[in-house]
Design a binder for these strands. Sequence first.
DNA 1: GGTGAAAGATCCCGCAT
DNA 2: ATGCGGGATCTTTCACC
Lengths: 145, 145
Amino acid sequence: MDPIDRKILGFLREDATRTYADMAAHLHLSPPALHDRVKKLKARGVIRRTTVDLDPEALDRSFCAFVHVETEGYAKDVLKDVAEADPAVEEMHGVAGSSSAILKVRTRDAAGLEELLRRLFETGAVRRTESFVVLRTYLERGISP
Amino acid sequence: MDPIDRKILGFLREDATRTYADMAAHLHLSPPALHDRVKKLKARGVIRRTTVDLDPEALDRSFCAFVHVETEGYAKDVLKDVAEADPAVEEMHGVAGSSSAILKVRTRDAAGLEELLRRLFETGAVRRTESFVVLRTYLERGISP
DNA sequence: GGTGAAAGATCCCGCAT
DNA sequence: ATGCGGGATCTTTCACC
């Protein structure tokens, strides 16, 4: 992981369709040398996968919220099952603090969120939830190398 | 946005390095027809960009937390400046509820989080913060088509 | 939306530093 | 161990039906 690798990761995060030849030129490297580095970064798991960023509005998921969940005892497993089964749930983190878990959720509208809350309570494992509805997203970039 | 487009988006989210020929075969389409659809999805902004998922540990960002920020009055702009300037901040959302904003943060360790909190308070715009340290991430997938 | 072909990128291998 | 040059192979991306 030298500075050149960092720059490569930066390039790929910005636009993973860039050609190796193009990036190599910017880094004063030959295309095969760059290709070699990328291959190693993938093999070492630094690069997990290449994917696409999608527009939530176009997919009918304009509504975004963070849901704090407090469970009865340790009930992460049942929580995870519900979260995983629902495509509206993008993230689930177990956290320290007053909540047991934080969910990041994207639904069509507020009714979609209520649907999810109903399913959460139906498990019997949830004591209470607190939802923070996103009014505006100011920043949403991934990890920066 | 027909069912075929949805499937294309699903394929690309899983692995954007798949060849058009491969995906086309799975969808009983010719490569150019598929290429055309992808081009249109990009032009319409449904596909925002192609990028890579990186391993936080490899980038020395093993520590993750959600920070709720309560400001003096409406101070989103100054908050955004601090958030944007700090590569540790991945997301910033203005929310309804007891907090004014939620930040998703990735740092090397707890000390890195405290650094950020110091910078936030130094703006003079922050009344209080509440940080939820992530103990374990159970789910972290992007949006699902 | 399909076909065929040209332009271009990937990604080997062998060699050198 | 890492980088370079050449070249085979495969993909993308035309123009045309």
